[in-house]
Design a protein around this nucleic acid. Sequence first.
DNA 1: AGTTAAACCTGGTTGC
DNA 2: TGCAACCAGGTTTAAC
Length: 284
Amino acid sequence: MPELPEVEVTRRGIAAPLLGAEVVAARLGKPLRWPLGQLPAALVGCVVGDVTRRGKYLWLPLHACPTRARSPTMGMEGGLLVHLGMSGSLGWWPQAPAPGPHDHFDLVTHRGTLRLNDPRRFGAVVWSEGLNHPPAATLLAKLGPEPFDPALTPLSFHAALQQRRTPIKSLLLSGEVVVGAGNIYACEALFQAGIHPGLVANRISRPRAQLLLAALRSTLARALEVGGSTLRDFADAHGVAGAFQAEAAVYGREGQPCPRCASPVRRQVQAQRSTYFCKMCQRR
DNA sequence: AGTTAAACCTGGTTGC
DNA sequence: TGCAACCAGGTTTAAC
């Protein structure tokens, strides 16, 4: 579920309660995609800084608290890089109940508990000494610019597309040219821009590239407004589901009429992912 | 460089 | 009702 809007909705829900919170304990459940890289006990005594987002990753800075640092392990600086995978969500619990079978990470602070629920366990929580240090730096290395970065312009976007010979849908999913779109929003943005998902990136004209960037931005912005998409698992930090899925024009609507021309929405598998599109409205 | 498949997991839905 | 097959928001790795 978690594409950029869902991750950002999550960030907005946890940033305020976490800012300045002191870590009292950390708990691991079943293994996630990657190991934490530190003993949970080593996190105790740290203070959480301002939570940020890069693509679909969240960064929770953890600073050593000088007044509380009593042991060598408490002198650490760094943070936790969190990814929600396919089915992850983070919840903020002033009073956390006993962990359920899919609760695989708890960061217990003096104010409340940040809890990762992730049935499929494709998510990850990784300790890193900084965003510019491994493993964080390695994981973020190939990410393209943020979709709302003003430095990403129609011109630079088009130039980046010109370098690639891969189908545009796959390229959007890769996050190498612009981050944030997953399967839902890639399909929706391409529909809105009237571009066929199989069109090879370097054959997209400058005006169409401009159209696509605008479509991606408006799709992501709209999803953000309504709390993201909830297909099954996703909820914000306070348990509220997203509503964007109800507004999707093509995603998950195989056989249903295209909202623009009423011809049936097609589904085809592209790079092992379902792609939904309208054959009439989206041209190569 | 590209595309493609397989891998990591669980659970819900569909079809026989 | 049971059971197998297929589907799902993501990403990495290996192989043609």
